[in-house]
Structures are given as structure tokens and as C-alpha cells.
């Protein structure tokens, strides 16, 4: 683990990530709590669920650990996050017409108690 972290800091790639990409989780490398490190294929397969916070069968930490260590998968995560952030910002944009609430209340025959 220390070696992998160091390699990543040096920009030399997450050791083992390439091998794991081909061979699935080999069990050669373990996560911080002794669990088997997931493979690149599994990390990429679970990318959407990971970003959505909807992982089942794996913990958030297990997948996060892979992205922390693997220089090959890490940019995919960053790209997905960048995309999601942009979509969220854009979707939150439209201003709600200021009189829409009044029109709805009028339609329903309510007042909202603001003037009660």
C-alpha cells in the first residue's frame, strides 16, 4: 500500500492496477483493513453507483480506495464528477416565475395563510 501510494505520488501509476485490470481481483493486494482490493474492471463497472451513493455488495470505502490508488481509473472518476457537477448546476438554474405560487393558490381556492 505504501509503495502504491508512493508510486502514485511520483506519477508512476498505481502498481498492480494494470495487472488487476486484466485479471480481475487477484487478491494480491489488500485494502487498508485487510480486505481484498477490487479490480479496475469492478471499479469501473461500479462507477455510476459509486457516484450515486448506491453501491450494493461493496462498501463506499472499498471502491473509493481503488480510485485513490489507481492512476488509471482515477481520471474516469474525476471526469464523471465533473460531468455530474455541470449537470446539477445547469438543472438548478431556471428561475421559478414569481407569481406562479399565487396562481396555484388562486386555482385551488386557497390562501396560504400569509395574510391571515
Amino acid at each position: 500500500m505504501i509503495f502504491d501510494g508512493l508510486m502514485r505520488l511520483l506519477g508512476l501509476g498505481g502498481a498492480g492496477s494494470e495487472a488487476l485490470a486484466n485479471g480481475g481481483s487477484s487478491g494480491e493486494r489488500d485494502g487498508p483493513d485487510g480486505r481484498e482490493m477490487i479490480s479496475c474492471h469492478e471499479a469501473m463497472t461500479r462507477l455510476q453507483e459509486f457516484v450515486d451513493g448506491e453501491l450494493h455488495g461493496l462498501t463506499h470505502e472499498q471502491v473509493e480506495e481503488h480510485f485513490k490508488v489507481c492512476t488509471r481509473c482515477y481520471p474516469h472518476l474525476k471526469m464523471e464528477e465533473s460531468f455530474r457537477q455541470k449537470v446539477r448546476t445547469a438543472l438548478a438554474q431556471p428561475e421559478v416565475p414569481s407569481d406562479l405560487r399565487d396562481r396555484v393558490l388562486q386555482l385551488l381556492g386557497h390562501d396560504d395563510g400569509a395574510d391571515a
Binding site: T45, L47, Q48, P75, K78, M79, S82, Q85
Partner: peptide, 26 residues
């Protein structure tokens, strides 16, 4: 397993040299 078939984003092969983290979205 939605997404399992094509795990790697096809866009990434286009952007990995110039913008691997997708900053262009912003």
C-alpha cells in the same frame, strides 16, 4: 449490472491526452 458491458467511457479515449478529468464540461 448496468454499465458492465462497456465499462470504460468511450469519450475518455478522446480526451485522455488533453483533458482526462473532463474540465471541458465546465
Amino acid at each position: 449490472d448496468a454499465g458492465a458491458g462497456d465499462v470504460a467511457n468511450p469519450l475518455w479515449s478522446e480526451t485522455r491526452e488533453t483533458d482526462p478529468e473532463g474540465r471541458f464540461f465546465h
